[in-house]
């Protein structure tokens, strides 16, 4: 898959994994693993980027004597998902057009 296409989708996938509850790094990777293989070092820059864009916020929670960083989606994050779905719809139209032309 093209790297740029994948990058945009990854961001939105990470945001989507936070839609129903706040989550932390390891758990995000686990919940995305059926859809895509995402490594720790791939996830880190995505989280940083999304946080600096205001799409998510983070806070630390104590767990077994250490800190665990939780991420929480913001309204901007939800908006980003919505935009992505709209863009995707546009792209599907193009896809259908191409598929249609191939069939002819």
């Amino acid at each position: 898959m093209d790297i740029q296409l994948k990058r945009g989708s990854l961001d939105v996938c990470v945001l989507a994994s936070l839609l129903n509850e706040d989550s932390y790094g390891y758990k995000i990777i686990q919940s995305l693993s059926p859809v895509m293989d995402i490594s720790e070092s791939t996830l880190y820059p995505i989280l940083r980027r999304l946080e600096s864009n205001g799409c998510l916020t983070s806070y630390s929670v104590e767990h077994n004597g250490r800190l665990r960083k939780f991420y929480s989606i913001t309204d901007d994050g939800r908006e980003k998902i919505r935009e992505y779905l709209l863009d995707f719809k546009e792209l599907m139209k193009i896809y259908e057009y191409i598929a249609e032309e191939i069939k002819k």
Binding site: Y24, G25, E40, R48, N64, R66, L67, K69
Partner: peptide, 14 residues
């Protein structure tokens, strides 16, 4: 520090 604590958390969780 941010990167180190991120990976430390990952290792602990795994």
């Amino acid at each position: 520090e941010d990167i180190l604590s991120y990976f430390e958390e990952m290792i602990s969780d795994r």
